[in-house]
Design a protein around this nucleic acid. Structure first.
Length: 456
DNA sequence: ATCGGCTCGCGCAA
DNA sequence: TGCGCGAAGCCGAT
């Protein structure tokens, strides 16, 4: 029987000589039942060894910076995951523990599990989970990139310098990796495990999420809503996307990034639908460039550069310039609190910050302007970087994501960008100005939309 | 409205 | 070794 999952998508960390008794997919980055290569691979292994499969997800009650906005979106998605898995007779368990590594190990040990499938995530915290599992004795461990279309570890083995260096590698590989997903099978040997429904009330009660950042109302969580948004985007918004996407007064963006971040939607599914919905056009090209090349580049940046969220991770030429301009006078200096409260002299920046704080999302074009101004108005580049990451991780639904770290490093640290005409504070890091925004879109209209709570 | 200069370094052709 | 060119720019000249 041919394997369903391309083995180039799989990192084999450990194998065991012992017969496989029980298989677990530790779901983390890819919180969905459909279109999930890690789940497909785990089921394939279970069938191969004739043993049962279950899905386990660990939650940390006081995960750093996580608040009600994030937990609400995630937990509603997970309720749907459990329902979908139960239709396939696949048990789903949530382990709520302050120390997810030990709690997961204990669960594995006490239940005789000896094959673990992890989903791929380039961020440090997840790399530590992976190493911890690799320390366990007599366990088979596989890691599957279920998030990218072309697997991150396979497409490149080094830090890529820019989009232009990774683009040809990704494009060349797309033909082989952009395939339809095989269906999951209904599990027959689950009765040895039994389906125990999660008490979601208990989970919610056990989580100590910051209640000051409220859940958002305008985007419904979960796989089904994600698929609805996707069809709506392909049918209604793809046409004209390349012209309209950088104008924050238009409702031109896909708004799929929260779903992609929590893994409620697969980028591969998005690409399949976009390719199916329209012939190749500047619109689909522009969208797929963002969806595929830029996302693959962000994962590459974080995976091969563990300093992705500090100044040491910046481009070498930019680091030199930062030292050169460290003592440049700043015309405006704001504290983190000023910025968080959107209390600057710049009404456009305040509006962008307010949009993020209230709606959990900032328009893609303004994210760059927003981050660059934080550099311009902070006493040091280190503080600017920390503040930009703090605010994005706290308020954006798609915070704590490689895209966010790469985007901020692009804005503040020249990562994946080129040098430009030097100027104070920024050195040769690309500058963006209020006047530039004036010439590109109706700034007043955008501010009015945010004030009225009507941005999309 | 459009254009050129600004600037760095990778990747590839030679 | 030389050369082309790059996520979203800026600014001043024409």
């Amino acid at each position: 029987m041919p394997m369903k999952v391309d083995l180039r998508r799989v990192i084999t960390h450990k194998i065991t000589e012992s017969p496989i008794r029980r298989v677990v997919y530790r779901m983390s980055r890819d919180q969905r039942v459909n279109d999930n290569w890690a789940l497909i691979f785990a089921q394939e292994q279970a069938l191969l060894h004739g043993c049962p499969l279950e899905v386990v997800l660990t939650l940390t009650p006081s995960y750093p910076m996580a608040n009600q906005r994030h937990y609400s979106f995630m937990l509603q998605g997970l309720v749907e995951v459990e329902r979908g898995l139960s239709e396939l007779n696949i048990p789903f368990r949530v382990i709520l523990n302050e120390d997810p590594t030990s709690a997961f190990e204990q669960y594995v040990r006490s239940n005789g599990i000896n094959l673990i499938v992890s989903d791929f995530d380039p961020l440090r915290i997840k790399r530590r989970w992976i190493s911890a599992i690799n320390q366990m004795e007599d366990i088979a461990h596989y890691e599957v990139d279920a998030h990218n279309i072309v697997p991150c570890h396979w497409v490149s083995q080094k830090v890529e310098f820019g989009a232009y260096t990774i683009r040809p590698k990704v494009r060349r590989a797309l033909e082989e990796f952009l395939t339809e997903f095989p269906p999951l099978k209904k599990q027959s040997c689950f009765d040895r495990l039994g389906l125990q429904p999660t008490s979601w009330q208990e989970v919610e009660a056990g989580i100590l999420a910051d209640p000051s950042v409220k859940p958002i109302e305008w985007l419904a969580p979960g796989e089904a809503s994600a698929r609805q948004r996707l069809s709506q985007f392909v049918e209604q918004k793809l046409k004209g996307y390349s012209e309209r996407r950088n104008n924050p007064t238009l409702d031109a963006q896909s708004n799929l990034s929260p779903y992609l971040h929590f893994g409620q939607l697969s980028a591969q599914r998005v690409a399949i639908e976009v390719a199916r919905g329209a012939a190749t056009s500047p619109d689909s090209e522009a969208f797929l460039e963002e969806l595929i090349v830029r996302r693959e580049l962000s994962d590459n940046f974080c995976y091969y550069n563990p300093r992705y969220d500090s100044v040491e991770g910046f481009a070498d030429w930019a680091k030199k310039d930062i030292e050169l301009h460290r003592d440049d006078p700043r015309e405006f200096i704001y504290t983190r609190e000023d910025l968080e409260q959107a209390l600057t002299h710049d009404p456009l920046w305040n509006a962008a910050q307010t949009e993020m704080a209230t709606r959990g999302k900032m328009h893609g074009y303004l994210r760059m302007y927003w981050a660059k101004k934080i550099l311009e108005w902070s006493p040091t580049v280190e503080e600017a970087l920390a503040t930009a990451i703090y605010l994005n991780d706290k308020y954006s639904l798609d915070g704590r994501d490689p895209n966010g770290y790469a985007g901020i490093a692009w804005s503040i640290g020249g990562v994946h960008d080129r040098a430009w005409f030097p100027r104070p504070i920024f050195g040769k890091i690309r500058y963006m100005s209020y006047n530039g925004c004036l010439s590109k879109f109706d700034v007043k209209a955008y501010i009015a939309m945010v004030t009225a709570g009507k941005t999309r």
